[in-house]
């Protein structure tokens, strides 16, 4: 126990700082990938064949590429080869590249989650929207998507939870986040190896479990009565 407490003395501030990085990655990647995923879903249900083809191609490419490879691509190719500089601050630059990588990857999953929500909306809703003179975009915005989101809360929650945990992959993108610190701590405090694992795992559990409960509650509360 003393050993574990001394671990906190030594690394406590860095543990919190690193985990804060994971939470920040989650927040920004969630916002960006949700917007991007929504746009992709609109493309995939649109009447314009070229947009549909683009949406389908995007989803198939990024859903099927391992996240680690997307992250490594960001750092080794975008930064390493093409010298991509979003921020002049070295660490902030990696952090932002990681956000882009996470967003691009999870947008594909959000798109598909939203599309599964679109499938819960009966065809008659779209027909009624068209029949009163709404064209595709207003019909999607006012009638289809509001119902689709409510029908997609559970699958979207699953994507969010996966995203939270996937922020640890930012390690591959040279971001100082919690799994990187975990590796360092285990290296220097091998005596506490098991508890280090458990600590980091529990930090994720503490974040993810309430989100899971919230998702279930929201999915019931916002369900569309038919």
């Amino acid at each position: 126990m003393e050993g574990y407490l001394s671990l906190w003395d030594e690394y406590g501030a860095r543990i919190m700082e690193s985990f804060w990085a994971n939470l920040q990655l989650t927040f920004w990647a969630f916002l960006i990938s949700l917007v991007l995923g929504t746009l992709l879903a609109i493309m995939r249900i649109s009447p314009i064949p070229s947009l549909r083809a683009f949406g389908t191609a995007y989803v198939n490419i990024f859903r099927n590429t391992p996240l680690t490879i997307i992250m490594a691509f960001g750092v080794l190719v975008l930064f390493g080869v093409f010298k991509l500089q979003i921020s002049s601050d070295f660490n902030l630059n990696f952090f932002q590249i990681a956000i882009i990588g996470l967003s691009i990857y999870h947008a594909a999953f959000f798109c598909e989650a939203i599309r599964s929500g679109v499938n819960t909306v009966p065809l008659g809703q779209a027909e009624a929207a068209r029949a009163i003179g709404l064209s595709f975009l207003p019909a999607a915005q006012l009638v289809i998507l509001p119902q689709a989101f409510r029908g997609a809360i559970v699958p979207m929650g699953n994507v969010l939870i996966a995203l939270i945990k996937n922020t640890t992959v930012a390690l591959a993108g040279s971001v100082a986040e919690i799994s990187g610190l975990m590796k360092t701590m285990i290296e220097f405090r091998a005596d506490q190896g098991f508890l280090i694992f458990l600590t980091v795992a529990l930090m994720f559990v503490v974040i993810v479990v309430p989100i899971g409960l919230l998702v279930t509650w929201l999915s019931k509360k916002l369900a569309v009565a038919r």
Partner: peptide, 18 residues
């Protein structure tokens, strides 16, 4: 869309926006 706005439609399954 504009022409449809001039044609009222009532469906078998109502299709009110749920």
């Amino acid at each position: 869309a504009m022409l449809r706005a001039d044609v009222g439609m009532v469906f078998q399954s109502f299709n009110l926006f749920a």
